[in-house]
Each structure stands twice: as structure tokens, then as C-alpha cells.
Design a binder for these strands. Structure first.
Lengths: 137, 137
DNA sequence: GTAGTAACTTGCATTTTGCAAGTTACTACC
DNA sequence: GGTAGTAACTTGCAAAATGCAAGTTACTAC
């Protein structure tokens, strides 16, 4: 165990709220998990099959970290065999604002991006001049 | 050289705007660089001395990536010896919304965090009962 | 006894970080 | 001419994080 050398005031990098928020959810996967949970996903299995295909060990690790951070909670939804469900806390749900800002920026600046909801209602439409009817993924 | 296997529609992970935005700035440092640039920093040297102490090679790498992504631009501000200055593009400046959402969440949920501006005007140790004229942001 | 399912864990190989020191190209001073 | 200083990077590793595949546990169903 290694408490990790921290900043004079107990922060890992600085007292900046941005830096500290990034230390909790500033990686490529955490916010996607939050996104899916805001969309109603609750179990490990449901979270596993996102369009981004998160690796199983990463998902397990992130769920642990998010729980330790108080952003989500884990409870058994059945015993025999025990199965767990994850739920967003108020703290976690409040990250919705951050997600919205990211969606907004992405849609404004990265061509052809579509939210999961949009993609669902608009099955297969995209960039011009490319005809292919491939089915896999 | 490996163009990296991409998703059928040309996206690295999925067409989700959140996933794609995270692929550009979803790491621990990029948004801190943007934060500093929004606060007026322009040179490599200025960006180096943030309170978070970004490693030199990481800063160089991120500046390159952000430039390739069209979020910042690099131009020489003097020759003999040549020195460069970085500037946010509209695309980069537009990340301000994301930063604001992160600041908001951080301040609401991580105790004792303070923006750089606040920390500057209140060089004091953290204390719950501290009252002072609050400035902007 | 065989198969299936949910929720993870484990073992590596590959990538990304982070730290420290080195490099390049000049200007300024003695 | 020689030493020092400065800005903007680069290089060399060691250490940590990521990603892939396969394995595990604890049950239910047939």
C-alpha cells in the first residue's frame, strides 16, 4: 500500500476541480459507462455489450473505481446465484451535464457522429460515396 | 505503419459523439492544456509550469495531437532563434463548455477544490468557513 | 452428466506514462 | 573566445495502464 505522494493540500495533482474530476473519470471508458447507465443499463453483462466493446477486465476495474468514488453503487439483485446490479448515485447522475457538453462538442465538431439514440432510429446512413452492404458490425 | 483497424463507418470505436470526443481529449492532460490556453497561456514554457506539473514529453506529444485534431495551431512568434506560440482554434475554444461542466461537477462533488483563479485570490490553506469576495468562474 | 449463463479473474503482450537527462539554436556577458 | 542562460523540445528507459483471450465460480435447466 502506498498512499501516494500527494500535493500539500491532499490533492493528487492540484486543487483544481477540473484536474480532480479528470483523476476520477478522465479516461477513455469511465464516462461511456456512465453514459450507458444514464440510458438504463444496470448489469455487468448489459454494460459489456456497448458499441465500443469495452474489455472485460477494464469494465470490472472501472466499476470498482467508480464505486469507490461514490459515483455508482453495487447491490445484489438476486441470490442463488448471486447477481449484481449497478446504480448511479446522485453524484454519478450529476455527470450528465458533462456528458451533454461532450455530446454537444462532438456533434458540432466531429462529422457524422451520432448518439446511440439517433443511431437506433436512423439505422444505416452515413458518409457519401461509399457503397457497401457489409453486415458484420 | 498501421492505419489501425477502424469501425465499419470509419470511427475508431463507434459513431457516438462522446466516444469520439474522448478519443481526442479523453486523457488526464489534454483538457488541462486547453484550460491553461483559455487562461491565456501560449508557449510551451508557459504551459509547462502549471500546478499539475505535466511531463515535458507528454506536453510535446499532446500539443502535436491537439494540433492534428485542429484544436490548436502552432506558429513561430519569432525567428532567430525560432520560438513557437500555440493558439486555440474556434474548435478548441468551444471546449470551454466541457471545461465549465467539469468545473461545476468538481466543485459540487469534490470538497476543497478551487479553480486557479480562486486559488490565486485566496492563497490560504483550505478551510470550510472561509468567506471572501468571490470573483467570476 | 452436459450445457448454458452471469459476473468476474488471470496471464501475458503491447502501449502509454512519467522521470531525468540530453540536444539545438541562439543571445548576453566577461 | 568561452561560459552561462533560455526556449522548446527529444531521447532513454522503467513503471503503469490497456487490451485480448481464456479460465473460474456458482448456479439453473435439461
Amino acid at each position: 500500500m502506498k498512499p501516494r505522494a500527494e500535493t500539500s493540500e491532499g490533492f493528487k495533482r492540484s486543487p483544481c476541480p477540473i484536474a480532480n474530476t479528470l483523476d476520477l473519470v478522465g479516461d477513455k471508458w469511465s464516462l461511456l459507462i456512465i453514459r450507458d447507465m444514464l440510458h438504463g443499463k444496470r448489469t455487468y453483462g448489459e454494460l459489456l455489450d456497448s458499441p465500443e466493446r469495452i474489455p472485460t477486465n477494464i469494465l470490472a476495474d472501472r466499476l470498482k473505481r467508480l464505486e469507490q468514488a461514490g459515483i455508482i453503487s453495487r447491490t445484489a439483485y438476486q441470490a442463488h446465484p448471486v447477481r449484481y446490479a449497478y446504480a448511479l448515485s446522485d453524484k454519478g447522475r450529476d455527470l450528465g451535464d458533462v456528458l451533454l457538453a461532450l455530446v454537444g462538442w462532438g456533434k458540432r465538431h466531429i462529422p457524422h457522429t451520432r448518439t446511440l439514440t439517433e443511431a437506433a432510429s436512423d439505422p444505416e446512413r452515413r458518409a457519401p460515396a461509399r457503397r457497401s452492404a457489409r453486415k458484420r458490425e
